[in-house]
Amino acid sequence: MTEHTQQTDPQGRLKHFLTTEGLNHTLLTSILDHAENFAGVENRPVKKVPLLRGKTVVNLFFEASTRTRTTFELAAKRLSADVLNLNIATSATSKGETLRDTLRTLEAMHCDMFIVRHANSGAAHYITTQVAPHISVINAGDGRHAHPTQAMLDMFTIRKHKGDFAPLKVAIVGDISHSRVARSEIHALNTLGVTEVRVVGPATLIPKDVESLGVHVFNDMSAGLEGVDVVMMLRLQRERMSDALLPSAHEFFNRYGLTEKRLKVAKKDAIVMHPGPINRGVEIESNIADSSRSVILQQVSHGIAVRMAVMAMCMQGNTEGIES
């Protein structure tokens, strides 16, 4: 029932995409290369390739999301798949149907791929144990655990700007504890071979023994940003204040908010990233968010190509045909 979940098939090809952890350098690089090819599709007059024609992709979102869901939907449509959007918060589970029954029902509709977002860590792993073997599962965010396509689109963005990963120092700033994005970034960056990954934040938002994931911990913002090539800001959820993890948004900005002044200690050409949606004046000041160093909007548009790549690879679609 709960056997070890393999993300790859016996030939080493991607089957599910649940986490960036454990996937090798070649596979991660190949996702980026495929995405590079798909990025060209967007500039064509007809923005479609027929790789997933006849396939049905289900967006199974148990948690609200705008950009992730819409970019997945666009990505699937550009691959010519039929797309079903299920907003579970307003659907069957609120009528008492269990997750297992919902999956059974969808399976009976002959779907081929589930894109899953869920508030609980391990939800995507669980779903792989419950669906028919031909179905691929892509994790669009599970609890605090992983958000692998977000991490890959960030890797894509970094590669666009920096070329080589090896010399890079990357700082991830903010609420590491509750962040699935941070965990997926850390695994991807380390596998792609960056020089250093740092996490920056107050002790209340840094999870225990996070060093074991291969990061250095900084409680001080200036020390954490010193000499870095990439600054990744994370979104701060309002409820952290009521959980006694932080005194106030104001104090957080005072200590960790990204300002022009703070950014001075980073490399001159350092880029600023944020998975969105941004809280201006909480994590980041508007000057920076709107500056040329900010690549936040590029992240969003790269999301489509990266998600096309992951979906095509998981469905074993022949991606060679689109190289042009």
């Binding site: 860590s121 023994d209 074991s212 994931l213």
Partner: peptide, 15 residues
């Protein structure tokens, strides 16, 4: 249990 494992799996930790 709060530690490397809960951190890696993203499971809410119990100290």
């Amino acid at each position: 249990n709060e530690g490397a494992f809960s951190t890696r799996l993203g499971l809410p930790p119990i100290p």
